[in-house]
Protein backbone atom coordinates (compact mmCIF):
# COMPACT_ATOMS: atom_id res chain seq x y z
CA UNK A 1 0.00 0.00 0.00
CA UNK A 2 1.35 3.40 -0.97
CA UNK A 3 1.43 6.22 1.55
CA UNK A 4 0.43 9.63 0.17
CA UNK A 5 2.62 12.44 1.47
CA UNK A 6 2.21 16.16 1.03
CA UNK A 7 5.49 18.08 0.93
CA UNK A 8 7.09 19.88 2.75
CA UNK A 9 8.28 16.97 4.81
CA UNK A 10 7.86 18.17 8.36
CA UNK A 11 9.32 16.32 11.36
CA UNK A 12 6.06 14.54 12.21
CA UNK A 13 6.02 13.06 8.68
CA UNK A 14 9.73 12.20 8.87
CA UNK A 15 9.28 10.25 12.09
CA UNK A 16 6.30 8.28 10.74
CA UNK A 17 8.21 6.91 7.73
CA UNK A 18 9.97 3.55 7.92
CA UNK A 19 12.46 1.91 5.58
CA UNK A 20 10.58 -0.08 2.97
CA UNK A 21 7.50 2.20 2.88
CA UNK A 22 6.27 2.96 -0.64
CA UNK A 23 5.20 6.59 -0.89
CA UNK A 24 3.64 8.97 -3.39
CA UNK A 25 4.97 12.49 -2.89
CA UNK A 26 3.05 15.61 -3.90
CA UNK A 27 4.07 19.24 -3.57
CA UNK A 28 7.29 21.17 -4.07
CA UNK A 29 10.82 19.79 -4.18
CA UNK A 30 14.14 21.05 -5.49
CA UNK A 31 16.59 19.41 -7.86
CA UNK A 32 20.28 19.39 -7.14
CA UNK A 33 23.22 17.24 -8.07
CA UNK A 34 27.02 17.44 -7.95
CA UNK A 35 27.74 21.00 -9.07
CA UNK A 36 24.80 22.67 -7.26
CA UNK A 37 25.59 20.82 -4.04
CA UNK A 38 29.19 21.98 -4.23
CA UNK A 39 28.05 25.61 -4.53
CA UNK A 40 25.55 25.32 -1.66
CA UNK A 41 28.21 23.69 0.49
CA UNK A 42 30.67 26.51 -0.18
CA UNK A 43 28.06 29.14 0.74
CA UNK A 44 27.34 27.29 3.99
CA UNK A 45 31.06 27.15 4.79
CA UNK A 46 31.35 30.90 4.20
CA UNK A 47 28.26 31.54 6.31
CA UNK A 48 26.42 33.14 3.38
CA UNK A 49 22.73 33.05 2.53
CA UNK A 50 21.52 30.19 0.32
CA UNK A 51 19.40 30.73 -2.82
CA UNK A 52 16.67 28.37 -1.58
CA UNK A 53 15.10 27.76 1.81
CA UNK A 54 16.50 24.50 3.13
CA UNK A 55 14.19 24.12 6.15
CA UNK A 56 11.93 21.08 5.64
CA UNK A 57 13.00 20.89 2.00
CA UNK A 58 13.25 17.77 -0.15
CA UNK A 59 16.02 17.57 -2.72
CA UNK A 60 15.80 15.30 -5.73
CA UNK A 61 19.23 14.31 -7.07
CA UNK A 62 18.53 14.62 -10.78
CA UNK A 63 19.85 16.23 -13.93
CA UNK A 64 16.91 16.14 -16.36
CA UNK A 65 17.10 16.06 -20.14
CA UNK A 66 15.91 19.22 -21.95
CA UNK A 67 12.14 19.45 -22.30
CA UNK A 68 10.29 19.54 -25.58
CA UNK A 69 7.54 22.04 -26.23
CA UNK A 70 4.44 21.15 -24.25
CA UNK A 71 6.33 19.12 -21.65
CA UNK A 72 6.94 20.20 -18.05
CA UNK A 73 10.34 18.50 -18.02
CA UNK A 74 12.38 15.97 -20.01
CA UNK A 75 13.35 12.55 -18.67
CA UNK A 76 14.07 12.88 -14.97
CA UNK A 77 15.18 9.82 -13.04
CA UNK A 78 17.47 9.80 -9.98
CA UNK A 79 21.26 10.01 -10.11
CA UNK A 80 23.57 8.06 -7.78
CA UNK A 81 23.45 9.67 -4.35
CA UNK A 82 26.84 8.88 -2.80
CA UNK A 83 28.38 11.72 -4.80
CA UNK A 84 26.35 14.10 -2.62
CA UNK A 85 27.56 12.44 0.62
CA UNK A 86 30.25 15.06 1.20
CA UNK A 87 27.63 17.82 1.15
CA UNK A 88 24.41 16.29 2.53
CA UNK A 89 25.25 16.42 6.28
CA UNK A 90 25.59 20.23 6.13
CA UNK A 91 22.22 20.58 4.38
CA UNK A 92 20.55 18.19 6.82
CA UNK A 93 21.94 20.25 9.70
CA UNK A 94 20.19 23.27 8.15
CA UNK A 95 16.87 21.43 8.16
CA UNK A 96 16.72 19.50 4.91
CA UNK A 97 14.39 16.59 5.66
CA UNK A 98 14.11 14.69 2.39
CA UNK A 99 16.53 13.41 -0.24
CA UNK A 100 15.60 11.40 -3.31
CA UNK A 101 18.21 9.46 -5.26
CA UNK A 102 19.47 5.94 -5.72
CA UNK A 103 22.27 3.93 -4.19
CA UNK A 104 24.10 3.84 -0.90
CA UNK A 105 24.80 6.69 1.56
CA UNK A 106 27.76 7.15 3.85
CA UNK A 107 27.75 6.61 7.61
CA UNK A 108 28.19 10.39 8.05
CA UNK A 109 24.99 11.08 6.10
CA UNK A 110 23.04 8.48 8.06
CA UNK A 111 24.38 9.88 11.33
CA UNK A 112 23.14 13.36 10.35
CA UNK A 113 19.76 11.93 9.28
CA UNK A 114 19.35 10.35 12.71
CA UNK A 115 20.56 13.40 14.60
CA UNK A 116 18.40 15.99 12.81
CA UNK A 117 15.56 13.86 11.40
CA UNK A 118 15.69 13.21 7.67
CA UNK A 119 14.60 10.53 5.22
CA UNK A 120 16.41 9.15 2.19
CA UNK A 121 14.05 7.99 -0.55
CA UNK A 122 14.89 5.89 -3.59
CA UNK A 123 13.28 6.48 -6.96
CA UNK A 124 13.69 3.87 -9.69
CA UNK A 125 16.95 4.54 -11.51
CA UNK A 126 16.76 4.36 -15.28
CA UNK A 127 13.04 5.18 -15.38
CA UNK A 128 13.32 8.86 -16.29
CA UNK A 129 10.58 8.82 -18.92
CA UNK A 130 8.08 7.27 -16.52
CA UNK A 131 8.98 9.47 -13.53
CA UNK A 132 8.73 12.66 -15.60
CA UNK A 133 4.97 12.05 -15.89
CA UNK A 134 4.60 12.93 -12.19
CA UNK A 135 6.40 16.26 -12.54
CA UNK A 136 3.86 18.93 -13.37
CA UNK A 137 5.98 22.06 -13.28
CA UNK A 138 9.69 22.82 -13.43
CA UNK A 139 11.50 26.15 -13.22
CA UNK A 140 15.10 27.13 -12.57
CA UNK A 141 15.53 28.94 -9.23
CA UNK A 142 19.33 29.09 -8.96
CA UNK A 143 22.56 28.53 -10.86
CA UNK A 144 21.06 28.70 -14.35
CA UNK A 145 24.60 28.62 -15.78
CA UNK A 146 24.86 24.99 -14.66
CA UNK A 147 22.26 23.90 -17.23
CA UNK A 148 20.93 20.47 -16.27
CA UNK A 149 22.75 20.81 -12.94
CA UNK A 150 20.96 24.06 -12.00
CA UNK A 151 18.61 24.02 -9.00
CA UNK A 152 15.07 23.60 -10.33
CA UNK A 153 11.87 23.96 -8.35
CA UNK A 154 9.59 21.05 -9.15
CA UNK A 155 5.90 20.62 -8.50
CA UNK A 156 5.14 16.93 -8.34
CA UNK A 157 2.00 14.83 -8.04
CA UNK A 158 2.07 11.29 -6.70
CA UNK A 159 5.79 10.96 -7.37
CA UNK A 160 6.64 7.31 -6.52
CA UNK A 161 9.48 6.65 -4.09
CA UNK A 162 10.47 4.07 -1.51
CA UNK A 163 11.94 4.90 1.90
CA UNK A 164 15.44 3.45 1.68
CA UNK A 165 16.90 4.87 4.90
CA UNK A 166 14.61 6.20 7.61
CA UNK A 167 15.35 8.64 10.43
CA UNK A 168 16.33 5.78 12.73
CA UNK A 169 18.93 4.53 10.27
CA UNK A 170 17.06 1.42 9.10
CA UNK A 171 18.29 0.60 5.60
CA UNK A 172 16.25 -1.18 2.93
CA UNK A 173 19.39 -2.07 0.99
CA UNK A 174 20.31 -4.33 3.92
CA UNK A 175 16.87 -5.54 4.97
CA UNK A 176 15.53 -6.04 1.43
CA UNK A 177 18.43 -8.22 0.41
CA UNK A 178 18.21 -10.19 3.66
CA UNK A 179 14.47 -10.68 3.21
CA UNK A 180 14.96 -12.04 -0.30
CA UNK A 181 17.74 -14.42 0.76
CA UNK A 182 15.61 -15.59 3.70
CA UNK A 183 12.69 -16.21 1.34
CA UNK A 184 14.93 -18.62 -0.58
CA UNK A 185 15.64 -20.53 2.62
CA UNK A 186 11.91 -20.92 3.24
CA UNK A 187 11.37 -22.38 -0.23
CA UNK A 188 13.97 -25.09 0.43
Amino acid sequence: MEIKIELPLTQDKVKALKAGDSCLLSGVMFTGRDAAHKRLFELIKEGKELPVNIKNSTFYFVGPTPKREGEAIGSAGPTTSYRMDAYSPSLIALGQTGMIGKGTRSDEVIKAMKAYGAVYFGAIGGCGALLSKCIKKCEVVAYEDLGTEAIHRLEVEDFPVVVVIDSEGNNLYKTGREAYLESLGEEK
Partner: peptide, 16 residues
Protein backbone atom coordinates in the same frame (compact mmCIF):
# COMPACT_ATOMS: atom_id res chain seq x y z
CA UNK B 1 6.61 0.46 -18.61
CA UNK B 2 9.36 3.09 -18.76
CA UNK B 3 11.04 1.85 -21.94
CA UNK B 4 7.67 1.46 -23.63
CA UNK B 5 6.79 5.09 -22.81
CA UNK B 6 10.21 6.26 -24.00
CA UNK B 7 9.88 4.47 -27.33
CA UNK B 8 6.32 5.64 -27.93
CA UNK B 9 7.11 9.26 -27.14
CA UNK B 10 10.70 9.33 -28.49
CA UNK B 11 11.77 10.45 -25.02
CA UNK B 12 15.10 9.40 -23.46
CA UNK B 13 14.74 6.12 -21.54
CA UNK B 14 17.06 7.55 -18.89
CA UNK B 15 18.00 11.16 -18.20
CA UNK B 16 21.67 10.16 -18.30
Amino acid sequence: ENYNIAEKETKPICQD
